[in-house]
């Protein structure tokens, strides 16, 4: 299946885009997705180690399974306020 991942802040600047599209296996888990992104976008690797992933605007754990129409985002450590 094809999925889109939103990128913000340093992740957006390092990859020079606000969203990436990837072809992934059905049933892929969040932890596996992080490894896959790191492989395809090596510049993001260090930041991904410190980042969370959100699914449908909720923080996900590494064993959460991704579905085709999920809203997915990479969430680097936040610094609001």
């Amino acid at each position: 299946m094809k999925i889109q991942i939103k990128l913000f802040a340093a992740a957006r600047e390092l990859s020079d885009r606000g969203e990436i599209e990837m072809e992934v296996d059905d049933g892929i888990q969040v932890g596996e997705l992080k490894i896959k992104i790191s492989g395809e976008y090596p510049k993001l690797k260090d930041l991904i180690l410190r980042s969370a992933v959100s699914l449908n605007r909720e923080f996900a754990t590494d064993d959460n399974v991704i579905c085709e129409h999920d809203e997915i985002a990479l969430i680097p450590p936040v610094s609001g306020g």
Partner: peptide, 13 residues
């Protein structure tokens, strides 16, 4: 510099 402090983003609901 993007400020990405360690210890933020709690990856649990």
């Amino acid at each position: 510099e993007w400020v990405h402090p360690s210890g933020t983003v709690r990856p649990i609901p």
